[in-house]
Nucleic acid binder design. Structure first.
Length: 564
RNA sequence: UGGGCCGUCGCCAAGCGGUAAGGCACCAGGUUUUGAUCCUGGCAUGCGCAGGUUCGAAUCCUGCCGGCCAAGCCA
């Protein structure tokens, strides 16, 4: 399977095609993926990664990984490391060494001096509160800061003293001199530098003034020779500022910023801030909790890099602010695992079955293919014994209409084994079914039974020759399609997205049994547990007990007909 | 009383003036020792609405309507 062929086109590719026809940038394509290291990457970042790196690949260009690290208070090397790891895992390679906006702090400072000298920037001593008032509102123009017409000499002096640490945080900022009456608030003399007396994860205590995003990003792009600077829709209003800064610095290249819609997925959230909150407040077990839409969570859940890349290709790139159905993501992982996951049997909720017609001592080795359509995966051996387990849900005393599984007096096929018939149901004092007594038809191994049709096939494991496992079943993280909208609808200030966490997002099945051939399973190994779904061994697995995460269930048309 | 952007099937999405691709979901059949996979077929006289231009409009024009973004010394 290849994911690099037949990539659907999109409006950004159209723009690039046009640029290449016009020989803009000598026809080169240089992109960048610019995360801030203040959290783990999520599926929405994967969309951006696939876009930026994919474009570079397809147009014989390059893509940089650049950490947008201008806010040391929220950033950490832990995030830097996880981001590098996740990008690599997704299958992409950045050009050269990872870049950091902080690499450019000296240049950024020099350009600031240039702007001041040109009368395009000034040091403003308004307090944050005053600055907000002076900014005006969405509908009302702002008014000029009293410091706006300070002399260049004074601005230079003040800025130098800001840099030297003479002022407290918040006391002064460097501002661009643009237009306080602009209908675009981003152009109302935006802040370029602020004072932050904190250590930076890359530059330590070298600086106590840090440049703002709008000032840093465009210059970083220009320094790196980025041709197409792709970002999400909320930065549309920032583009005039991106262009303004570069227009003041004519010695620099001028990349083109293009905005696309960020990814929204239903029943989950793609907000780094909120994901961090889930982790910090321990609503989940960590950034890599398999319920999280983070790259690390998806990886632990069992999603493959290819499935995620295919997903990103399928959903497309547009400017429409939409919501993608989780079913699309699930389809993509099933599509990949269908081909690559060996089949195995796992009884998640065991019900003891004794086959009275089977000799107590007899253990029969049965050979079964690892994949029904791919012989190259080889075969495994199943151990058939007198006492086996089947799943509780595969037996019903009073079967619903169209039920094809085991019921009293009826037959069912044991997958890769014999046809058995249920003769007796044994219950405990509470009336709970605790055991089935069955008989088997010796003439049904690898062949259809004589004179009758047995439709149902169920999976099973030998009681003795199977290994204990814990199976973690996951469901959607939130019970509402859009937790934020649900919180708003509740029209209640206290209501918020956490109120819609799905209490059943994790179900631990601790008594599961997997077939003997899985005894040597390693963390990360993926299987299709037949009739159940795709599962991946979790790093929590121990010598005593394997742990499997359900990546996704199989499509289940029975669940649909049973509901009717 | 403003600015920017967006509205094509339940969801995503092609389309760029010549008469509505595709995928997901869903429905109906076929194959099947996984109610899986696979295969076949169905699924927008219609493109937010209303006018207009044109031989011809989802594509151009005008006006409405609806949604999203932005008033961090966050990115």
């Amino acid at each position: 399977m290849s994911d690099s062929e037949n990539k659907p086109s999109n409006f950004i590719r159209h723009i690039i095609d046009g640029d290449r026809r016009a020989n803009k940038n000598n026809g080169q394509v240089v992109t960048r993926f610019p995360p801030e290291p203040n959290g783990y990457l999520h599926i929405g970042h994967a969309k951006s990664i696939c876009l930026n790196f994919g474009l570079a690949q397809d147009y014989d260009g390059v893509c940089n990984l650049r950490f947008d690290d201008t806010n040391p208070e929220k950033e950490d090397v832990e995030y830097v490391d996880s981001i590098k790891n996740d990008v690599t895992w997704l299958g992409f390679q950045w050009q050269g060494e990872p870049k950091y906006a902080s690499n450019y702090f000296p240049q950024l400072h020099d350009y600031a001096l240039e702007l001041i000298k040109a009368g395009k920037a000034y040091v403003c001593s308004l307090s944050p509160e005053e600055a907000r008032e002076y900014r005006g509102s969405l509908t009302a123009p702002g008014k000029d800061s009293p410091y706006r017409e300070q002399s260049v000499a004074e601005n230079l002096d003040l800025f130098a003293r800001m840099k030297a640490g003479e002022f407290d945080e918040g006391a002064k900022v460097l501002r661009a001199k643009i237009d306080m009456a602009s209908p675009n608030i981003n152009l109302r003399d935006p802040i370029l530098y602020r004072i932050r007396k904190v250590a930076h994860h890359q530059t330590g205590n070298d600086w106590c003034i840090y440049p703002m995003y709008d000032y840093t990003h465009c210059i970083s792009d220009a320094i790196e020779g980025i041709t197409h600077s792709l970002c999400t829709l909320e930065f549309e209003d920032h583009r005039p500022l991106y262009d303004w800064v570069l227009d003041q610095l004519p010695e620099l290249a001028h990349p083109q910023q293009i905005e696309f819609a960020r990814l929204n997925l239903n029943y989950t959230i793609t907000s780094k801030r909120k994901l961090k909150q889930l982790v910090d407040e321990k609503h989940v077990l960590g950034w890599d909790d398999p319920r999280m839409p983070t790259v690390s969570g998806l990886r632990r859940r069992g999603y493959t890099p290819l499935s995620i890349r295919n997903f990103c290709d399928r959903i497309g790139v547009t400017k429409v602010d939409g919501v993608v159905d989780m079913a699309t993501l699930e389809f993509c992982i099933r599509e990949d695992l269908e081909h690559r996951a060996p089949r195995a049997m796992c009884v998640i909720n065991p019900l003891k079955v004794t086959i009275d017609t089977w000799d107590t001592e007899t253990i029969e080795d049965l050979s079964a293919p690892r994949h029904p359509k791919d012989e190259s995966m080889g075969r495994r051996t199943l151990k058939m014994t007198r006492v086996i387990y089947i799943d509780h849900s595969d037996f019903a005393e009073v079967p619903p209409p169209k039920y094809k599984r085991l019921t009293i007096g009826k037959e069912v096929r044991l997958r890769n084994s014999y046809v058995i018939k249920c003769n007796e149901v044994i219950k405990d004092e509470q009336g709970e079914i605790i055991e089935l007594r069955c008989s088997h038809d010796v003439d049904t191994l690898g062949k259809k039974p004589e004179g009758r049709k047995v439709k149902g096939v169920i999976h099973w494991v030998s009681a003795e020759h199977s290994v204990p496992a814990q199976v973690r079943l996951y469901d959607r993280l939130f019970s509402e399609e859009n937790p934020d909208a649900a919180a708003k609808d509740h029209n209640n200030e206290d209501s918020h997205f956490l109120d819609f966490l799905n209490p059943d997002s994790l179900t631990i099945m601790d008594q599961a049994r997997v077939e003997f051939s899985l005894a040597e399973t390693q963390a990360g190994d993926a299987f299709q547990f037949e009739r159940e779904g795709y599962f991946t061994a979790d790093p929590d697995s121990t010598a005593e007990q394997l742990v499997f995460n359900r990546t996704v269930s199989l499509r289940d048309s029975w669940a649909k007909t049973a509901r009717k």
